[in-house]
Computed example of a mutant assay.
Amino acid sequence: MSDGLIVRILGEGQYDVAATALDRLNELDAAVESAVAAGDEESFRPALLALLDGVRTVGVPHAADALDESDLILPHGESSLDEVRDLLADDGLIPG
Rank of each mutant, 00 (worst) to 15 (best):
residue 16 D to M: 10
residue 16 D to N: 14
residue 16 D to Y: 12
residue 16 D to L: 13
residue 18 A to G: 10
residue 20 T to D: 15
residue 20 T to S: 15
residue 21 A to C: 06
residue 21 A to S: 15
residue 21 A to D: 12
residue 21 A to K: 07
residue 21 A to I: 02
residue 22 L to V: 13
residue 22 L to M: 15
residue 23 D to N: 09
residue 24 R to M: 06
residue 26 N to V: 01
residue 26 N to I: 02
residue 27 E to K: 11
residue 27 E to A: 12
residue 28 L to P: 04
residue 29 D to V: 02
residue 29 D to H: 07
residue 29 D to Q: 04
residue 30 A to Y: 05
residue 30 A to F: 04
residue 31 A to Y: 08
residue 32 V to N: 02
residue 32 V to P: 01
residue 33 E to F: 06
residue 33 E to P: 00
residue 33 E to Q: 12
residue 34 S to W: 04
residue 35 A to R: 01
residue 36 V to P: 04
residue 36 V to Y: 07
residue 36 V to N: 10
residue 36 V to E: 04
residue 36 V to C: 06
residue 36 V to H: 09
residue 36 V to W: 06
residue 37 A to P: 01
residue 37 A to D: 13
residue 37 A to N: 13
residue 37 A to Y: 04
residue 37 A to C: 00
residue 39 G to D: 10
residue 40 D to W: 09
residue 40 D to T: 04
residue 40 D to A: 13
residue 41 E to F: 07
residue 42 E to C: 00
residue 43 S to Q: 11
residue 43 S to Y: 03
residue 43 S to P: 00
residue 45 R to K: 14
residue 46 P to Q: 01
residue 46 P to N: 00
residue 46 P to G: 00
residue 46 P to R: 01
residue 46 P to W: 00
residue 47 A to I: 03
residue 48 L to Y: 03
residue 49 L to F: 06
residue 49 L to G: 00
residue 50 A to H: 05
residue 50 A to C: 03
residue 50 A to V: 01
residue 51 L to I: 02
residue 51 L to D: 00
residue 52 L to K: 03
residue 54 G to W: 08
residue 54 G to I: 04
residue 55 V to A: 07
residue 56 R to F: 02
residue 56 R to G: 03
residue 56 R to C: 02
residue 57 T to M: 11
residue 57 T to Q: 13
residue 57 T to D: 14
residue 57 T to E: 15
residue 58 V to M: 11
residue 59 G to E: 01
residue 59 G to A: 06
residue 60 V to I: 11
residue 62 H to D: 09
residue 62 H to E: 12
residue 63 A to F: 06
residue 64 A to K: 14
residue 64 A to C: 02
residue 64 A to P: 14
residue 64 A to T: 15
residue 65 D to N: 11
residue 65 D to W: 09
residue 66 A to H: 11
residue 66 A to V: 02
residue 67 L to I: 09
residue 67 L to F: 11
residue 67 L to C: 06
residue 68 D to H: 10
residue 68 D to E: 15
residue 68 D to L: 12
residue 68 D to T: 15
residue 68 D to C: 03
residue 69 E to N: 10
residue 69 E to R: 14
residue 70 S to G: 09
residue 71 D to F: 07
residue 71 D to S: 10
residue 72 L to M: 12
residue 72 L to Y: 15
residue 72 L to K: 07
residue 74 L to P: 05
residue 74 L to N: 05
residue 75 P to D: 11
residue 75 P to H: 11
residue 75 P to V: 13
residue 75 P to Y: 09
residue 76 H to W: 08
residue 76 H to P: 04
residue 77 G to K: 08
residue 77 G to C: 07
residue 77 G to R: 14
residue 77 G to L: 07
residue 78 E to T: 14
residue 78 E to A: 14
residue 79 S to T: 09
residue 79 S to Q: 06
residue 79 S to E: 04
residue 80 S to G: 15
residue 80 S to F: 04
residue 82 D to S: 14
residue 83 E to I: 10
residue 83 E to S: 12
residue 84 V to L: 08
residue 85 R to Q: 12
residue 86 D to G: 05
residue 87 L to F: 11
residue 87 L to N: 03
residue 88 L to N: 10
residue 89 A to K: 13
residue 89 A to T: 15
residue 89 A to F: 06
residue 89 A to L: 12
residue 90 D to L: 07
residue 91 D to G: 05
residue 91 D to A: 15
residue 91 D to V: 01
residue 91 D to I: 00
residue 92 G to Q: 00
residue 92 G to T: 01
residue 93 L to P: 10
residue 93 L to N: 10
residue 94 I to K: 03
residue 94 I to Q: 02
